[in-house]
Amino acid sequence: MSVVIIDYGAGNIQSIKFALERLGTTAVLTNNANVIREAAHVIFPGVGEASTAMEKLISSGLDTLIPTLTQPVLGICLGMQLMCNRTAEGNTKGLGIFDTDVVRFDTNLNVPHMGWNTVEGAGVLFGGIPQNSHFYLVHSYYAKSNGNTVGSCTYGIPFAAALAKNNFYGTQFHPEKSGEMGAQLLKNFLAI
C-alpha cells in the first residue's frame, strides 16, 4: 500500500514527505509512470510558475498519465491548479480534470495571499475537521468555485480551497504545513 509523491522538479516535496512520515507513512518520490500507476495513493505537489511546471509534466509524459490514474490522487497548491482546465499564469492549458479555470487575484489586497485563512470544507477530506479551521496558503492565482468545490475560502472573493471529482482531490492550501488540521486532512486522504 505505497504512497507516491510525484517528483517532477517543481517545488518543496520534502515537506510533504516529512508530513507523511509524521503520520507513520513512508512515501516514494518518483516520476516513473509504472511506480505511480501501481501506488495506492498519489500526491501531486507543485510550487512555482504554472507554465514551467506544465512543461516539466509534458516532457516526462506525466500530463497524459495523471488524468488516467484510478487510485486516489491529491493535488496540492500548484498541483491542484494544474488539474484544472486552464490557468491564466503563463496562459497554460491544464490537465482538465477539474472543470474550472485558474485566474489571478484582482484585488487591492496583498498578493500573494499568504498566511492562515479559514476554510469551509465538506466531504471525505474534511472528516473530523471543524468548520472554519485554519489552513496555510500562499498563492497569487486561485481556482474559481465550481461544482467540484468541496472547500471554500475567501480573500476578497470566495474561491475553491479544495476540489474533488471521482478519485481526484485537490487543495489550494498546504496540508503539510497546516498544523494538526492539515495532518488530519492528509490522514483522511490516505484512508480513502
Binding site: 520534502q14 515537506s15 516529512f18 508530513a19 512520515e21 509524521r22 496555510y136 500562499v138 498546504h174 503539510e176 504545513k177 497546516s178 498544523g179 494538526e180 492539515g182 495532518a183
Partner: peptide, 11 residues
Amino acid sequence: VRDVARAIDIP
C-alpha cells in the same frame, strides 16, 4: 533545516 522540516508542521 532538514531536522526542523521533519519535526514541525508550520512554515
